[in-house]
Design a binder for these strands. Structure first.
Lengths: 153, 153
DNA sequence: CAACAAATGAAGCCAAGGCTACATTTCTGT
DNA sequence: ACAGAAATGTAGCCTTGGCTTCATTTGTTG
């Protein structure tokens, strides 16, 4: 039941399992990487909308440190995925789905920063690293972070 | 000294700074993302070399959950970057530089997993998430993790 | 040792996410 | 109101990292 061929030595079965699990982890990470961009954009757009009432392509591009055509392309993808809407020469807005994603992402981001700080990471580094880390934190891990922070307070 | 034009209101200067810092963080994350693949490959190749004495393209591909041409391409990149060497139809080996990277990456990976477990993340989730997280943990943060774990023991 | 299986290589396709260069539209100030 | 500046759009190029498909080499085994 553990392996494909009962004739094979158990060590091989175990090795195959380990490899399959590894492949799984990498695939997971790859898929997280794929959504990272969308998450960054929705989060930023939500911030801009809240702070300035609008999210212009130029502002988005400047905040993300990319050129404006790059931002335009990304926003096109957001629209394709049903996360944002926009009309030519007007700002970008989030759909309900996009806003929900932004909320989730912002909450997660805050939690990651808080946890890093709680374990002794300097605030500046925490902010820096969280930008990359946040996209790979699962719900399970997030829940653990929350418990840890609550207990610590 | 804080902004470009002394005539501008200070709030704008501050906003520009915040935006520039944000762009910085994103650029940092982007560059980390770029090295993530190389790190994964060198780490895995080191593991395979240690466990089986050789690292075949097929094994690399299977462990990473990709097809063999994908692995071949990645190895080509490793070679271009001076991290690995290989001859046609023979296995892949690491250069000194590649081996050093593998060591660093493995140590970092272990530390990240340990820290996640230490704050209460279930082991399985810790392994899963660490695969993505590790690439975005800076030296500063890593040092903080190390201190935290030492103090806790 | 010949034939088949398995591993590797090579070519070429695709989408994503960068970029530059140039066209168009909108906004602003006189 | 109109000219110039700023913002946005569009086109096209590059690299990465996936993939499939097919050719070639290696290894195994009867």
């Amino acid at each position: 039941m553990a392996g494909k061929h009962s004739g094979k030595p158990p060590e091989e079965d175990r090795a195959e399992l380990v490899e399959a699990e590894a492949a799984d982890r990498f695939n997971q990470a790859r898929s997280a990487r794929a959504s990272a961009l969308l998450e960054d954009y929705t989060e930023l757009i939500a911030d801009l909308l809240q702070e300035h009432g609008e999210a212009r392509i130029t502002d988005i591009a400047r905040c993300l440190g990319v050129t404006h055509p790059t931002a335009t392309k990304a926003v096109a993808r957001l629209k394709r995925e049903g996360l944002a809407v926009s009309r030519p020469y007007r700002g970008v807005f989030l759909t309900e789905e996009g806003a929900e994603m932004a909320d989730r992402v912002r909450a997660r981001h805050r939690l990651v920063v808080e946890l890093l700080i709680a374990v002794g990471v300097p605030e500046e580094a925490a902010e820096m690293d969280a930008e990359g880390i946040e996209h790979y934190v699962s719900e399970t891990t997030l829940a653990a972070f929350e418990r840890y922070l609550k207990d610590k307070r």
